[in-house]
Nucleic acid binder design. Sequence first.
RNA 1: GCGCCCGUAGCUCAGCUGGAUAGAGCGCUUGCCUCCGGAGCAAGAGGUCACAGGUUCGAAUCCUGUCGGGCGUACCA
Length: 541
Amino acid sequence: MTILPQLIQSLADSLSALGLPKRDIKLSPPNNPDFGDFATNVALTLTKDAGITPIQIANNIKDHLDVSETLIEEITVTPPGFINFKIAPTYYYQILSEILTNNQFGRGLSGKGKKANVEFVSANPTGPLTVGHGRNAVLGDTVSNILEWHGYDVTREYYFNDAGRQMRILGESVKARYFEILGTHFEFPEDGYQGNYIKDIAQTILDDKGRDLLTGDPIFKEQAEKTIFVDIKKSLNNLGIHFDQFTNEKTFYENGDIDRFLEELKAKDLIYEKEGATWFRATALGKDQDRVYIKSSSEPTYRVPDTAYHRNKIARGFDLIIDIFGSDHTDAYPDVLLALNALGENTDNIRVLIYQFVTLLRGGEKVKMSTRKANFVTMDDLVDEVGADVVRYFFIMRGMNTHLNFDLDLAVDQSEKNPIYYLQYAHARICNIIKHGETMGISTNSNYNPTLLDNPAEVRLLKKLDQFPSMVENVLQTLEPQTISTYLHDTAIFFHKFYAECRVITDDVELTNARIALVSATRIILANGLGLLGISSPEKM
RNA sequence: GCGCCCGUAGCUCAGCUGGAUAGAGCGCUUGCCUCCGGAGCAAGAGGUCACAGGUUCGAAUCCUGUCGGGCGUACCA
């Protein structure tokens, strides 16, 4: 049982006993551990209403606190009015035992019985997965892991469109290369795809289908899409990412969903014709400008299928719908939500995660990536060079709002010093200790005396392990996975320092048993945390 | 012009639902393996948290403005 909720409840009770107004009580470990294990500022927030000094309020609250004396060792009030709690070691010993008996320690239940949908990557099959897609892919998969950890049944979904203009140009590009190989004059599309993979696809078609294909043959586009999708899936697989569902935009034209919702909007007078195009009357719903739904060329804009698609996701009964978009979508998705609301759909369960683009640098120079101009670095090349764990950690260790710079040369040069190894090394070290212990005839068991763990380095590590459940619960709310990597890094620091200071396996059997228990628990936390990030926990490196 | 995001150590970035002395990695200086893995540990140098106001008992964190950068602002997706 975690102590935090108990303490918060006690504080709330004390507040109401004193007739003080309710407050959202925040309890967090102070920077300076001398103050205690947890501190709260409630008294400071009440100073205005109460009319007495925060110190007095704090003391009043403290006097009315009803807490277990076996778990709380000491409560102090310090200026300007913090209430500090020192938790008894007994509590931490209890946590240690919980971790060892439940290797899913900290697993949440808030998503139990609920379904979530996470849509990410969703790159149209016009070329290989590039480093530019990396942040999206890793973010989406990690968020999915976090939801699953809390009990959600997650559908990882990839949405694509194989009918648009870009796909047509792709087909034209392949066709041009096919005839080029044959020596027939055929003009390469002005804005065609220039990558070598186009030539490879053309060659494959030539090998399979011979030299007699006509210019109108659909094989060019079809083969290109097929080949590229296989390639993309393979690249994702290299990162440990698997999708449960691929949804084609075409579906919503074919099943009538799009016609249906357009009719509904028309019935609400939210659709009108102007200058040969069909418009969505967004201004009637508070927006600055109306939006084109169907171009004068009679092609719908992306908003139309996107709206049908999201309505479809809502209809599929998900309790939580998450979209992972790049910052170029910032202005686009509100229109979709707006239309959904106009259709009477509840969009409260939709969360849109916007990440900022990564600036790629090579030798200090900016690299502008374009799939069309074949000016890109593929995900596969990067993974081959530095490994999937390094790639995943790089993309997840920073907040999604960060405009981060990624120097390709440095990434390769410094991959051996990547901070991920610090975490994995801690895990490997522990495995080695345990293995070493086994050869000495020592095994992890429940017969250990936790009170022997009184070295400051041991206590500090134990306290860090205790924070895992609240940390991971917080991440479920914020959906900011970098918090996990920060936490794991801290945990690894405390472990490595402990390791340097305390020898685990010694002649002292009692102490050895206790320390084996501590490192075993640390290993479980590290492995679970790394698992959430989709990163391996090697037993040796 | 307008909207969203960012500006923290030489570099890459944590910290941001306000709290007590602003952190990490890399790079730099210097120590530490007879002993569970040195991919580690210990010590040091390095800061106007872009700038200016404001709110507050308290601001890197919230508000306003300025400067600088990214992305949008399409009958592209």
